[in-house]
């Protein structure tokens, strides 16, 4: 009987932990914003001397 109660206790504690993790485990933050967004990135070409493959070896 004692063993049975211990098993029940362990299972209930484990269930509580799993429940917390399932509820709070998502990293998908529930945040909304009215500002900001993503648009296609258009690079600004600098005056880099290595704009193209050059034989540097």
């Amino acid at each position: 009987m004692k063993l049975f109660r211990r098993i029940l206790l362990v299972l209930s504690v484990a269930s509580a932990i799993v429940g917390i993790l399932r509820v709070g485990g998502s990293s998908k933050a529930k945040v909304t914003t009215k500002q900001g967004g993503w648009r296609t990135y258009t690079p600004t070409r600098g005056s880099s001397p290595t704009n193209n493959y050059t034989s540097a070896k």
Partner: peptide, 19 residues
């Protein structure tokens, strides 16, 4: 042959980053 010899990382000034 776009990279110079030695250790390179992408973005460094000696790499053909744009290409």
């Amino acid at each position: 042959g776009g990279f110079a010899s030695g250790v390179r990382v992408l973005g460094d000034s000696d790499s053909p980053n744009d290409a």
